[in-house]
Amino acid sequence: MLTTELIVANSFEAIRGIRPWLEEALAPAGEARVSAAIGGIELAVHEIATNSIDHANNAEDTLRFVAETAAESVTIRMIDHGDCYVTQEPLPLDGEPRVRGYGLLIVEQLATSVEHERVEQTNVWTLTFAL
C-alpha cells in the first residue's frame, strides 16, 4: 500500500495538479492498469474538487488529497474546510437539459463507491476506484 498526499490552493488553476499527482500515486498498480484507469479517476477527483471550489466557501483556502494505492484499487480522500454541500441534477434526457450540476452524477458513475462525511468543520469525500 502506497500513501501519497497532495495539498493545493483552492483554485481551478491549482487543481490541474491532480493529474501529475495521480500518475505518481497510482504507479504501484503498474503501467497497464494506470493507463486504463487514470483518465476516469482524474475526472472524478477533478469534479469533486471543482464542486468544493464552487460551493464550499472554503475558508482554509486549500484542498487536501490523500491516495492509498493497493494492487487492484485506490482510495482517494479529499478534505476541505468549507460549508457542507451536495449538488446533483437529473440527466439531460429526463427533460430540458440543465446547464450545470452534473459533477456528482459523473463521480458516481466512475467510482465504485462515493462517500461524503461531515467531520467537525470539514467535508471529507472518499472515492474508491478499481484498478
Binding site: 437539459p97 446547464v99 450545470r100
Partner: peptide
C-alpha cells in the same frame, strides 16, 4: 469536465 460541458450546453 462538467464546467466545460456546461459552457457548451
Amino acid at each position: 469536465d462538467s464546467a466545460g460541458l456546461a459552457a457548451l450546453v
